[in-house]
Computed example of a mutant assay.
Amino acid sequence: MSFPTKQQLYAQFAQADDAVYFASADKQQVYFGFGVEAALNSGDASVVKAWLREQKQPVFGGLPFDKQVTTTSIMAGYFVAPAVVYEVNQAKTWGQPMASWPTITHANQAAIASQHDDTTWVERIEHAITTMQTDVTKQKVVLGRQRQLQLTTTVNEAQLLQDLNTQQPNSYHFVLKHAGELFVSATPERLVQVKAAAFSTAGVAGTIRRSADEVEDQQLADELFNDAKNRLEHAYVVNTIKERLADLVTLNVPTKPTIMKNPQVQHLYTPINGQLTAAVNILDLVTRLHPTPALGGKPLAWAMATIKQLELAPRGLFAAPIGVVLPNGDGEFVVGIRAMLINHQTAHLFAGAGILADSDATQEFAETGLKMLPMMNLLKG
């Protein structure tokens, strides 16, 4: 049997009860998985590590952002070894190939019927800003907000995957379908990749908008690069990564960030790589790195307590480590931002912003709105 086309894989994803899609930012690794060979509901990294050692198939899933209780099966921590996995670029298959493929349909995409935002977010963020202004030991907290959308019908998942590739070609893609829920992330941010004894991660923090005008777009990039607040926020992230991994790896860290450009926003970006210095599982690196200051804050204990206090709902897989682990131990985890959870005709979108003592809460609210655009555009078709 010939290897399936992308359209056939999209159509099968829409038809399957359990499915997963993962693509690296450069699209050199593109995986589709269907069915369940084995699955684990757990947010405990040590439990997941032990379970991973028993799996012969690639495993996909994620750990929750923190230990707050969530009410959904995916968001509380979920990993699956699909019954069959297709790696598109190498035309490689794990498991028994499917005997037939569904007919490709062209059903209409859902539309947004209503939108409910977090109306008190600015007020709560100002509370955090005041705390940092009066206590210099409190340096940064990343605070998120969620938006709830009611849709006119269920989502056309095949079209959603196709639009994800068209609209967000330079992002990581992670889409997990289980128990009637669909978690979608088009994240720019890798947490860590392991290949043989080499690893790669990155510091991503500091954001400004894009412009359709090339000259203005470069001016915005220059403004971001030279902005003291954003450079300080970025330095927090890079220095923390270095501190947390020092005893596990040898590190190569550039002295200055570059600019990462995504369709709606651009970020300060520092690639970090090196060699593992011990027998380390990818989840060891994941648990050391998560949450980076780009997702949590500094000092970490205060930031995590503030997130729990000020955000209205647990994050679950939002801003959490999500990814793939191959049977040989190689793999890649990304950060579940630019994300949404769809359950029937309700979608929950998430976005966060790094809050410092000199932050402007209204401006940060606008930035989180920009970060929701990738998922809003997907739902708008």
Results as ranks from 00 to 15, higher is better:
F3V: 11
L9T: 07
Y10L: 04
A11V: 04
A11D: 04
Q12W: 05
A14F: 00
A16I: 01
A16M: 04
D17R: 11
D18F: 09
Y21G: 00
F22Y: 15
A25W: 12
F34S: 04
G35N: 09
V36P: 03
N41L: 13
D44M: 02
A45L: 00
S46I: 08
W51M: 06
W51D: 04
Q57T: 08
Q57N: 11
P58R: 06
P58S: 03
K67G: 05
K67V: 06
V69M: 11
Y78E: 13
P82R: 06
V85A: 12
P97V: 08
T105E: 13
H106I: 03
H106N: 13
A107K: 12
A107Q: 10
S114W: 02
H116Y: 07
T120Y: 08
I125T: 15
K138H: 14
K140T: 08
L151C: 09
T154E: 15
A158T: 09
L160D: 07
D163G: 01
D163W: 02
N165S: 13
Q167P: 00
F174L: 05
K177M: 02
H178E: 07
A179S: 12
G180K: 05
P188Q: 12
R190C: 00
V192F: 11
A196W: 00
F199I: 05
A202E: 15
A202R: 05
V204E: 01
T207K: 11
I208A: 15
I208M: 13
R210D: 11
E216D: 14
Q218T: 14
L220T: 07
L232M: 12
H234K: 07
H234N: 13
A235C: 06
A246K: 14
L248N: 07
V253P: 09
K256Y: 08
T258Q: 14
I259P: 09
N262H: 11
N262Q: 14
V265C: 08
Q266P: 03
T270G: 05
P271L: 10
I272Q: 10
N273S: 15
Q275G: 05
L276W: 02
V280T: 15
D284Y: 13
L285N: 14
P293C: 11
A303V: 05
K308Q: 15
Q309M: 05
E311V: 03
P314R: 02
A320V: 04
P327D: 02
N328D: 15
N328A: 08
G329Y: 00
G331H: 11
G331K: 07
G331E: 11
E332Y: 12
F333K: 12
V334Q: 10
G336I: 07
R338Q: 05
R338L: 01
M340F: 02
I342C: 03
Q345C: 09
G352C: 01
G354P: 00
A361L: 09
T368C: 02
L370W: 14
K371R: 05
M372T: 12
P374Y: 06
N377R: 12
L379E: 07
